[in-house]
Nucleic acid binder design. Structure first.
Lengths: 154, 154
DNA sequence: GACCTTTTGACCTTGTCTGACCTTAATGTC
DNA sequence: GACATTAAGGTCAGACAAGGTCAAAAGGTC
């Protein structure tokens, strides 16, 4: 438990816990400097510990004034959302994706227009690829949209 | 958000929001003076944030009494769909895709939630592929969503 | 020793900012 | 009116400031 990646992970999670907004901005190079490591080490930590599946959103920007922004999603493990997001899985077919959207529509979670928008993004011909990839990308898109809705909930 | 270009962008957008006519006239050198930067920095901001695809028209005039005039170009949701869909093209980068969505939001064509939904579907890591394909799929997704919105109009 | 995780370094891409030099328009002078 | 002067804005290459990627080396674990 004494490796760098764990230390950096803890550091970031402490920062997140302290922040009101559930968001921290850090500089990749600066953070690497603090921990005396290669900048790409920061990417490793982000890629292994701050995945969407773990309830984090990482956004970055390059160039002057660039940053790494981490946002924590307070996912309630009992909430229907969590189950919903899990139900998407690694890959999902078009009919199963549409079924999820239809249920959201029926339950009044999304509007008619929102449902149309989601359907439009899940179409087979839209994600014009061969089998396994098509379903994987569809799962990514759907999961990402579900999380966006969840975030918009407040 | 600590870079000059963003500050100047915000400044100009505030001016535009305050203006009745949806137009502002500024002096390039004077503005550069205000922000203590090179005049060409102003051109950089105009070229990266006030393009036609962002919904702005920039006109300038040189010589004595010269000016930079920025006009907000409002999207007409009944007429501009064709052009909008065409502007997506065969392939589109994430920033350009987001610019289109931002414009839809700005002009009240989509709601906040709808915009979030669209953004969620356009993310880099969501369409987890390498270059040209990533942009091609993003274009398909965005085009499909625009068409869905258009159809929902009736 | 096979396998997984961590760490680094070389090289890449994107975004910002400046400075030197260019073009155009208005105004003043003869 | 011709010409010079002055007052704008335009262009572009290049420096600078981030973050991204990937493969290979190093370190742990069983």
């Amino acid at each position: 438990m004494a490796n760098l990646a764990d230390l950096i992970e803890q550091h970031l999670k402490r920062l997140l816990a302290k922040s009101e907004s559930g968001t921290v901005d850090v500089g990749r190079n600066q953070l690497a400097e603090t921990f005396s490591c290669a900048p790409s080490q920061i990417n490793y930590v982000l890629a292994t510990r701050f995945l969407l599946e773990h309830g984090y959103i990482v956004e970055t920007r390059r160039g002057g004034g660039g940053y790494v922004r981490i946002t924590v999603l307070e996912l309630d493990p009992n909430a229907d959302w969590q189950r919903l997001v899990n139900s998407v899985g690694e890959a999902i077919s078009q009919p199963r994706g549409e079924a999820i959207v239809n249920r959201l529509l029926r339950d009044g979670v999304v509007s008619h227009r929102e449902a149309l928008l989601m359907m439009a993004a899940l179409g087979r011909d839209v994600l014009s690829m061969k089998q396994p990839w098509c379903d994987i990308v569809r799962a990514n898109v759907l999961r990402s949209m579900l999380i966006a809705l969840y975030r918009a909930k407040r």
